[in-house]
Design a protein around this nucleic acid. Structure first.
Length: 270
DNA sequence: AACTGCTACAACCGCAGTGGT
DNA sequence: TACCACTGCGGTTGTAGCAGT
């Protein structure tokens, strides 16, 4: 029994991706779209497992990715979302277009965690550290801890789509925080537009962006912020940021036309 | 210049969830 | 309903690059 390994370990390359591999993967996905990751390496001529291809694409090659450090606003957003969602990085990432769960996770572990600790805030519970130690007697190990019910703001009721009064009140927050953390969260919570954009729309922004399945009534989703798949071809013309040319993407024009053809075919076919 | 420790980030691993049969 | 195949997620590890000594 036991589950099949995600890929045949023999002959599967591991470690950092080369420019050549990136090129193959991009070429394949632009031509064929994202489907059946398991088959991708074989079809794209890569000696990688499908999982690795998916990860490379979503975390690094995807053209809608932002580069560089998270901005102050993004960082605050992440902190607030983490307070509500816990380590559900994919959910958090869905709220930050152009950012990946991996990126946010890394940034959390390397920057934000320390920042919060410096400010005297427990990065797990988002409560002041001194208060934490006082009431730590019966609390479980924080390492795997999700935000505790009743702690700060309860877990998001994902189906609601809107913040319920309990979550919205942030009164518990105001009550038990007297220091920098309250300032931080207050600054976020007082930003109504920010909160609205956070909670009123559950659409996974980034995924929606790259969902190549035509959705007639869903052209330019309700956020009005994000371009359609077709619109994203702007990136092809502006990929300096992306870095495609960094690895000698000479077949670029070909890929671009392939991609456009693919779009055309998809539109015709559905 | 060489060594060491630290940081940041890319990539991997294993499990859980989901959909199809 | 059980099983299987596959994807996605979150935790962890590996490593390149940088700073300090």
């Amino acid at each position: 029994m036991g589950r099949q390994p995600c890929c045949d370990k023999l002959g599967v390359k591991k470690g950092p991706w080369t420019a050549e591999e990136d090129k193959k993967l991009i070429n394949f996905i632009l031509t064929n779209g994202q489907c059946c990751w398991r088959a991708v390496p074989k079809l794209a001529g890569l000696r990688r497992c499908g999982k690795s291809c998916r990860l490379r694409w979503t975390n690094y090659l995807r053209p809608d990715l932002k580069r560089g450090l998270l901005t102050e606003a993004e960082e605050q957003l992440v902190i607030d979302l983490h307070a509500r969602l816990g380590n559900r990085w994919s959910k958090i990432a869905a709220r930050l277009p152009g950012r990946t769960d991996n990126e946010i996770k890394n940034h959390w572990n390397t920057h934000i965690k320390k920042k919060l600790l410096k400010m005297g805030i427990d990065p797990v519970t988002h409560e002041p550290l001194n208060k934490q130690t006082a009431s730590q007697d019966s609390s479980p190990s924080p390492s795997k801890q999700q935000p505790q019910p009743g702690n700060n703001l309860d877990l998001v009721k994902e189906t609601d789509g809107v913040l319920n009064s309990e979550e919205n009140s942030s009164s518990s927050q105001a009550e038990n925080s007297s220091g920098d953390d309250s300032l931080l969260l207050d600054s976020i919570c007082s930003d109504e537009s920010l909160l609205n954009s956070l909670w009123l729309d559950e659409t996974p922004l980034v995924e929606a962006l790259w969902d190549t399945t035509p959705k007639p009534e869903n052209t330019n989703n309700n956020t009005g912020l994000l371009p359609s798949w077709e619109d994203n071809y702007a990136w092809l013309l502006d990929c300096q940021d992306f870095g495609i040319h960094d690895f000698g993407f000479n077949c670029f024009n070909e890929i671009e036309s392939n991609a456009l053809q693919t779009i055309g075919m998809k539109e015709e076919g559905h």
